[in-house]
Design a protein around this nucleic acid. Structure first.
Lengths: 137, 137
DNA sequence: GTAAACCCTGGACCATAGGCCAAGGTCAAG
DNA sequence: CTTGACCTTGGCCTATGGTCCAGGGTTTAC
């Protein structure tokens, strides 16, 4: 057996769907692979690594666009770890901003829930009252 | 002047665009308003309250679909504060789940960044190494 | 040898929350 | 009465990350 993969095997080994692989190719995350005489895509075995890179980066909250930049960065030998570190730091800042926002939301919800008796008419429910515009800061 | 509003004034007072108001009507968040002879939408003044309700709920992280449920809940007299409280609690659970996930992401990023010297060849960068599949747990 | 399982392309579609546009009708001020 | 600002509908477009489909060709397993 040759050390190449059909799209189905590649997708299976990477834990994604074949449509996803073609989609990544379309948006430039995967290089266009060579084709067999039949037209089938013929992936080198190390494409699995690249797909797994993408999956891990997604888990870290990078968008596909950002992953594309990371891949470009790590493909250019003349640039070193500094660029990659900067990209990760930028992403960390975004994540921390989102965290702070979500904490604010959580605190707001919790305050309202704690103040709501959970029974009785809606007019007494602080959640409805807050949403309806009563100022209770 | 009558106590009714054109869509433009309503939108302005609520701080949204006219397209947004029509969109909310389309998806059922706003009741279809009466029309003038000209066909213009003719909003009662208290529509502003309803739009502001929607805006506040959005700030709390509710989707438009969830806001629709909240509005339905708070429109049915026979149900009390219990339903609204349950909805808020469900949303709080979702928010806390997202928070936990985001914290995991942040910790992962921070660990990688701290381990990266920020200079030298990419082969030594732990960020690239981690993404490329080296097991460094 | 043939049937199942795979692959190809192009395009449509999902949810989310609207934005933008054209062609036309209406309203208010000067 | 005209000009400009507003309103109407319908439909298409945005970004995100894919998924699904039809209608074909190919490969593999029995």
């Amino acid at each position: 057996m040759p050390a190449t993969l059909t799209i189905g095997r590649l997708a299976e080994q990477a834990g994604v769907g074949t449509d996803t692989v073609r989609y990544y190719e379309r948006v430039g995350l995967l290089p266009t692979p060579p084709r067999r005489a039949s037209g089938y895509r013929d992936y080198p075995a190390d494409s699995v690594q690249r797909l797994r890179f993408i999956n891990r980066a997604k888990e870290l909250g990078f968008t596909l666009g950002e992953i594309g930049e990371l891949l470009e960065l790590s493909g250019r030998r003349e640039h070193g770890a500094a660029d990659v570190k900067r990209a990760a730091e930028a992403k960390l800042a975004v994540v921390e901003h989102k965290l702070a926002e979500l904490q604010r939301v959580r605190d707001g919800l919790r305050t309202l829930i704690d103040a709501c008796p959970g029974h009785g008419p809606l007019q007494h429910c602080p959640i409805v009252r807050a949403l309806s515009g009563e100022e209770t800061p």
